[in-house]
Every structure is written in structure tokens, then in C-alpha cells.
Amino acid sequence: MILSIQYLYWLAGVVLAITAGMILCDRDHPKRWASSVFWGLFAVAFLVGERLPPAAVGAGVLVMAALAGFGGVGIGRYRALAEGARQEAARRLGNRLFLPALAIPLLTVAVALGLKNVHIGSLALLDPANTTFVALGVASLVALALACRTTGDTPLQAMRESRRLTEALGWALVLPQMLAMLGLVFNDAGVGKAVAHLATAYIDMDLRLVAVVVYVLGMALFTIVMGNGFAAFPVMTGGVGVPILVGVYHGNPAVMAAIGMFSGYCGTLLTPMAANYNIVPAALLELPDKYAVIKAQIPTALAMLVVNVLLLYVLM
């Protein structure tokens, strides 16, 4: 392939290295050294991570966790435009400001769909396993050029803005990856089997409704623990869905699978373990309460769990 995801890792690594360098040069930064080490280590994981021994990366990850855990990651100084100048720019540029912002999602879709099967010679243009990510990378670069042209500002300023938002996100930017890592460690250690054992060994599922409730709530609870419905599905469907809902009660497996996965998604709406959907957005919107997004989702998720129990019971 020509555009492999490796280029995006390098791009992200360079952006993070610039962020770390800018922090290091910022003499007024309240957490100058610890913050630059934190983002520097993150940059290393992107630049050369796959070539380092995994245990060394693991040690680096633990150092990052310790730095973040003991308050070592701070926010530096940022020189914004004066409020008046910003509002004047907004008036002058108007709807032209929307164009680069909308270009990111629209170009991502266009590139992913339009160039998916394009080959140059015998080489695929886009990394076939990571089409959407590569498309997002291309779209971000094109949008950056558009944004520089529209605003008349420089790529250097864009890097300062990237640093500002990266620092505003702080450890939340690393959390999704840490949780995915934990999911893999849980898998290696057999946590899934242990949870399924507990869920199925002690509940009497002689009533059809009880079995439906156990499956729906089990999917949700397991997802709350693992942060990922995809991890819950094999465990709960293997433990309850296939042997009991299909095997004993002769339910329709397509209905069971579809509603089971949606029940898992209800769990996703409820858990800080699904950080990229729940914690990162709270950080991106600079909300003081990091659980505010989850709190807004609780009533919808609980109502949907009730609906899923009813739907599964009736349709199965």
C-alpha cells in the first residue's frame, strides 16, 4: 500500500514531539519538566514504538501513568487573540470559517469511499485495514491547508493551537488507549471467563423472562466493566445467549444478537471505561465535571435497557 497507517503514527509522533518541545521551551509552564516528559514519552510510542522491546514501552506507559496520577501534567501559557480581534475575525471571515471545519468529516467520508479500491500499479493507495484512519489523516492535512489559507495564519500557529488543545485534554487523550490495553491484559488473564462464570452459575434461569433479563443486563454490566460491548458479546452470548436463549427457549439468534449488542451499547453509555465516548468529550468541551456526559446519558441508557428486555422477550 502507498498510504500506510505508519505515516499517521509518525505524523502524530511529530505533532506530539513538537508539543513536548514547546512545553520544554515554556519557562513559565507550571509543570514544565514532568509535562514535557509525559508528552515526549507519548511521542516516542508513536515514532518508534513498534521497534522498541515491549517491556520498555510498558515501563514508559507506567511512568506516564505515574506522572499523570501525581499531578505532573499541567497546562501552559497560551497567547490568544484579544476577544475583540477574535470577534472581528469571526465577522470578517463569516461562513468561510465553517468550510475547513466541515472539510474534515466530509473529506474523510469522500476519501474513504472514493479511494478505497484505487490501486497505483499493483499497490493499494490506502491501507486496506485502516481506510477510515488514513482518510481522516488525509482530510486533516487538506483541512489544515484550507484553514491556514482562510485565516491567513501559519502552520506554526496551528501547532501552537494543537498544543493548546492537547494540553487542555491532558491525560484524557491517553486514557482510551490505556483502557484498550487493559482490555487486552484482562483477556490474557481470563477476566471475561470469571465474570461469565459468576453471572451464570448463581442465577436460576428457568423462567424465560429471567433468562432474557440476565442476558440483557449481563451484556450491559459486562460492558460497563470492560468498557467495550465487543468484549462482552462473546462472553455473554457464549454463556447465556446460545445455550439458554437459543438452546432452551428456541429464540431467534438474529434477534438475540442484535438486541444483545445494543444492550452492550447501553452499558457503553454508562461507563467511564469507554473513555473516548464519555471522558474525552467532557475534557474536549472543558466541562468541570468529567462525568457530566455520562450523567446526561443515564436516563436514555436505562430506558433503552427496559425497551431491549421487552423487545427481546416479544420478538425472540
Partner: peptide, 25 residues
């Protein structure tokens, strides 16, 4: 821990890559 962290590097990409554009705008 290290292998898991390297294997899941695509996750922060989605957040990180658009930041420069959004910040500048």
C-alpha cells in the same frame, strides 16, 4: 502492557489529528 499500548495506537489518532485545524479556526 507495552504490546497492548502499541497495538491500540489508532485510538488517540482520531482525537489528535483534527486538533490543529479546529484550534486554528
Amino acid at each position: 502492557i507495552g504490546a497492548g499500548f502499541i497495538k491500540t495506537r489508532t485510538l488517540p489518532l482520531i482525537i489528535l489529528l483534527p486538533l490543529a485545524v479546529i484550534g486554528l479556526l
